[in-house]
Design a protein around this nucleic acid. Structure first.
Lengths: 154, 154
DNA sequence: ATCATAAATGCAACAAACTTGCAAACAATT
DNA sequence: AATTGTTTGCAAGTTTGTTGCATTTATGAT
């Protein structure tokens, strides 16, 4: 999905946040990621490079999200993923596997259609559209044949 | 969104599940609801009519969902809502307020467009599309003027 | 109608994801 | 280098949902 990369140092500087090793590690992980990362993913990746606490990861993610540096993809059942929100990674829908929870980025082809009809006046503001396609990914289709009960998978 | 109502007793009978007072109370609450209900909402509503336990609500909701009687709307941060999945309440997108978490049903106007481009072949199966519009509802626009920080609201 | 059996419920304990309070450590500016 | 406000780590807490097991209840057969 991404063809170019942001500069982590520059991004943090422009945000007004302090350039700490922990924030650098989190942002670099997200910049290099080819798919959205959960907080647990990020903790695992950053812990290799820096001393970092689980709580710190949550706080850094919240601070980045609040400044529009990253997008939070809410995947249900308290397990959000995060991706860069820079010019190199425009808003796009995601596919989520109901079985393994995997998040796959989809091309941003049809969102313009959705925005069109949102141009109609309404008494609420729409800041974001989450288009989530939920089903089974290739691996899980192979893995379970006729024995999957939706309730048991989360 | 709903113009007619299902019969709770009949629905349970056809599902093969036992017709317990707890299941009747949960289903009746969902049938009469004008917007999706959380497990907590349902516990509060049903506790007025029947002796019912928190765990029982979760189990009843799972059993209904697995049989296609209701739909689960995953709203992020571990707080699902539920709505009837009967003929009177076809699949439709939802609006969710980022501030108060309120879920509002939207008309099912554009889902056909989304299904269209999904007809293209892919190596995963799409069982469901969640279209979530996230922003601020009328009440919350009034309530907070320029002082809302996204991170503090969940 | 009663009984037997499988299903459903309640309770207590558990689990995962995330949050809060506060003291210690650190980054950025002077 | 000192200061000051930000950031981090740790421990404890909260919320939402789940599991195990004993008790109760619905249902179908007698």
């Amino acid at each position: 999905m991404k063809e170019e990369y942001c500069d982590a140092s520059e991004t943090i500087k422009q945000s007004g946040l302090a350039r700490t090793p922990q924030r650098m590690a989190v942002l670099e992980a997200l910049i290099l990621a080819i798919h959205p990362l959960s907080a647990a993913d990020i903790l695992a990746l950053t812990a290799e490079k820096t001393k970092i606490n689980r709580v710190t990861v949550y706080r850094i993610l919240a601070s980045f999200r609040d400044r529009g540096i990253i997008r939070e993809i809410e995947t249900g059942h308290a397990n959000s993923s995060y991706e860069m929100a820079c010019a190199h990674n425009p808003v796009h829908p995601h596919f989520r596997c109901r079985d393994c929870g995997r998040i796959i980025c989809l091309p941003p082809l049809t969102l313009s259609q959705a925005w069109d009809w949102l141009a109609q006046p309404a008494d609420f503001t729409v800041e974001r559209i989450d288009v989530q396609l939920i089903g089974l990914c290739a691996e899980c289709i192979k893995k379970d044949n006729g024995n999957t009960v939706a309730s048991d998978n989360f």
